[in-house]
Computed example of a mutant assay.
Amino acid sequence: MHRTYSLRQSRAPTASQLQNPPPPPSSTKSGRLFGFGGVGHALRKNAAGTFGPDLAKKLTQLVKMEKNVMRSLEQVAKERMDVAQQLSIWGEHGDEDVSDVTDKLGVLLYEIGELEDQYVDRYDQYRVTIKSIRNIEASVQPSRDRKQKIADQIAHLKYKEPNSPKIVVLEQELVRAEAESLVAEAQLSNITREKIKAAYAYQFDALREHCEKVAIIAGYGKHLLELIDDTPVTPGETRPAYDGYEASKAIIQDCEESLTSWVTSNAAVSSKLSTRSRTLSQRRRNGIKTRTEGGHDLSAQDAPINDRDSWVPAHQHKDRYEDDDGDLDASSDDDLEEEEARRSVLDSEGGLGGETRGRPHEQMAA
Rank of each mutant, 00 (worst) to 15 (best):
Ile154Leu: 05
Gly49His: 11
Val175Pro: 02
Arg176Val: 13
Asn286Trp: 06
Gly94Lys: 12
Asn46Tyr: 13
Val345Thr: 08
Thr4Arg: 15
Ala198Met: 11
Arg134Asp: 00
Ala341Asp: 11
Ala47Val: 13
Gly49Phe: 10
Gln363Thr: 13
Asp54Lys: 15
Gly37Pro: 03
Glu92Cys: 09
Ser265Asp: 05
Ser310Glu: 08
Asp97Tyr: 04
Val214Glu: 11
Ala215Pro: 00
Lys222Asn: 10
Gly294Val: 08
Gln75Lys: 12
Gly52Ser: 05
Gly38Lys: 08
Thr234Asp: 13
Gln148Ser: 15
Asp309Cys: 04
Arg276Ile: 13
Glu111Thr: 08
Pro165Tyr: 07
Val312Thr: 08
Arg176Gly: 08
Gln282Gly: 07
Phe34Cys: 10
Glu66Ala: 14
Ile305Pro: 07
Ala155Gly: 06
Arg122Ala: 15
Leu224Lys: 05
Asn46Ser: 13
Tyr245Pro: 02
Lys45Ala: 15
Ser139Ala: 04
Glu340Val: 14
Ala247Leu: 00
Glu180Val: 03
Arg11Tyr: 14
Ala247Pro: 00
Arg8Phe: 12
Lys64Asn: 12
Leu346Pro: 03
Val263Ile: 02
Gln148Tyr: 14
Lys213Ala: 02
Ile150Glu: 12
Asn286Asp: 15
Glu114Thr: 13
Glu116Cys: 04
Ala15Phe: 04
Lys78Ser: 13
Glu339Thr: 13
Thr28Pro: 01
Met81Ile: 15
Ile130Leu: 10
Asn306Tyr: 12
Asp121Trp: 05
Ala201Phe: 13
Val76Ile: 14
Leu188Asn: 07
Ala186Phe: 07
Tyr202Phe: 08
Ser181Gln: 14
Ala186Asp: 09
Gln363Val: 14
Thr4Met: 14
Asn286Gly: 09
Asn306Lys: 13
Gly35Ala: 05
Ala155Glu: 11
Leu43Met: 14
Tyr126Ala: 02
Val169Arg: 12
Glu340His: 11
Ala201Ile: 10
Pro165Thr: 03
Ser332Arg: 09
Lys104Asn: 02
Ile150Pro: 04
Gly38Phe: 06
Glu237Phe: 00
Gln118Asp: 15
Thr275Arg: 12
Tyr321Val: 10
Cys211Trp: 14
Asn190Ile: 06
Glu173Ser: 10
Pro142Asn: 02
Lys147Leu: 12
Asp297Tyr: 07
Ala84Arg: 04
Glu74Trp: 02
Arg239Met: 04
Thr290Lys: 07
Val63Phe: 09
Arg127Tyr: 05
Gly351Thr: 07
Ser6Cys: 04
Pro24Asn: 04
Pro240Leu: 10
Ala268Val: 07
Asp103Asn: 15
Val69Ile: 11
Glu137Leu: 06
Leu157Phe: 02
Glu209Tyr: 08
Asp297Ile: 05
Thr60Lys: 10
Ile251Pro: 03
Ser143Leu: 12
Ser189Ala: 14
Ala300Phe: 07
Asp302Lys: 15
Pro53Trp: 09
